[in-house]
Design a protein around this nucleic acid. Structure first.
Lengths: 249, 249
DNA sequence: CTAAGTAAGTTGTACAGTACAACTAAGTAT
DNA sequence: ATACTTAGTTGTACTGTACAACTTACTTAG
């Protein structure tokens, strides 16, 4: 249920005040881990906190996010979409709830709980930081080099883990691709996220059997043999494969 | 980051009051979906809300939960454990964060966000409802028959989906078992949760290969051939299998 | 004591999806 | 023409499950 009944509770909702709501509330925030594959690396978008002395973690880098605005935000996801658009100027093709982190100590201003989301973005020229205080950071096999504010390092680590885990058996990387791409392109993105090479023919068989992409009547020309271009089938939700890629041995 | 900087925000944190926190905060709650397999069925523990007129959804059944108490609860998980112990008198062998639900309308008292957990409990005689207002309900291939308060029907549905999904490729049902059990017992629990029969020899092969359980020097006697008793290997976290059970065709 | 019944547990073949490796194909550069 | 590089294919091996028939161990009915 959403409230303790009078008898059982200790302190929060005051006893003797049934339905009363005059007790201290935690701060409520939403943070978004925004991933893209840029320059042959998995990158995450971070924003720099204001330099004011009054703010916690001044000048530190942090995940884009902020307080839930109960007047503007209908629900948590709408809040995440708002933060995302503020920093990138676009809506991401994939947004998933990651989890929540709440404790007495994570924010010096008091007991706070954040609802974390993670988003996948294609590497479009337009998707550069839409805000002046935002920058992309590579997450080289672990964390980025900067120290993050709050417990955002934990959240980012959880996001990377979740992403890597899901990429083993889903088509999530498709949401990191531009509108048209080749199968070797897609495989490269899988390999960048997983940080290990994949086998070509098994990869192709899996992707083509997934009914996820369709060829367009064009080839990508290059210095070598041209490659078939594909695009994502429209309105396609992520595909789950029956097995993971490499047996974990 | 955990706060909007002055320029970008609309209404929440007041501009011109850097670091100010004098804006309305959502209510913050934690709810726990507690599963057990009892009487050959997947069941969930629900509590009845107080009958007071002042309370929302009086007399309705709801998930165990309630407001975060910023003095008692160090963090969200501690809060979930507290709610769990209040209603069952024990700590569950498995507790996982399910997700969060937050919106303007889910609680008539105002903008609220709940952090949902799900727990797996063995069917111990002692694990009956530890509280007078709590009861077990079967979740027969979908939802229970009662109408739930708030958006708890959504949360429960998500929990059942997550459980069913994970049971396809993990050893989670082991946490629903009593200290000693046979392989047919375990298979039965898998079948109850998945609501479909599984193949005996493949099931045994998988479980025995998982290095998850160990035989005890006892047999379960019955009207037929006795069955080997096993117990969970201690301090064993859930095992992930490389494939799902039945090919989805 | 024997025969029937039932559930526990084993064995063997088939199959699906991936791993691995060698191959062919199509372009550019010299 | 020849070498080089990347795209894409082909064939065999292996792993874990599906399916089905079998053996084992106990109880109960006669």
């Amino acid at each position: 249920m959403d409230t303790d009944s009078g008898m059982e509770q200790g302190r929060g909702p005051k006893p003797g005040n049934p339905g009363g709501l005059d007790f201290p509330r935690p701060l409520t925030t939403v943070d978004v881990v925004i991933f893209a594959v840029r320059d042959d690396a998995l990158q995450v978008l971070l924003v720099q906190r204001p330099a004011n002395e009054g703010e916690p973690f001044p000048d530190s880098w942090a995940l884009p996010g902020g307080f839930v605005d109960i007047e503007k935000d209908r629900d948590l996801e709408a809040c995440a979409v708002r933060k995302l658009r503020d920093k990138t100027g676009m809506v991401s093709p994939y947004l998933e709830q990651l989890g929540s982190w709440g404790s007495a100590g994570r924010d010096p201003r008091g007991w706070s709980a954040t609802h974390a989301y993670f988003a996948l973005m294609p590497d479009l020229p337009a998707s550069g930081p839409g805000a002046a205080d935002a920058r992309w950071f590579a997450v080289g096999s672990g964390k980025p080099k900067v120290r993050l504010a709050f417990d955002h390092a934990d959240i980012l680590e959880a996001a990377v883990q979740r992403l890597r885990n899901k990429v083993e058996y889903t088509s999530l990387p498709a949401y990191l691709m531009p509108p048209e791409f080749t199968l070797p392109d897609l495989q490269r993105v899988y390999e960048i996220v997983l940080d290990r090479p994949l086998e070509k023919s098994a990869f192709r068989t899996r992707m083509l059997a997934a009914d996820l992409i369709e060829p367009v009547a064009k080839m990508r020309k290059g210095p070598n043999r041209p490659a078939q271009l594909y695009r994502l089938k429209k309105a396609r939700s992520p595909v789950f494969f029956a097995r993971t890629f490499n047996a974990p041995g």
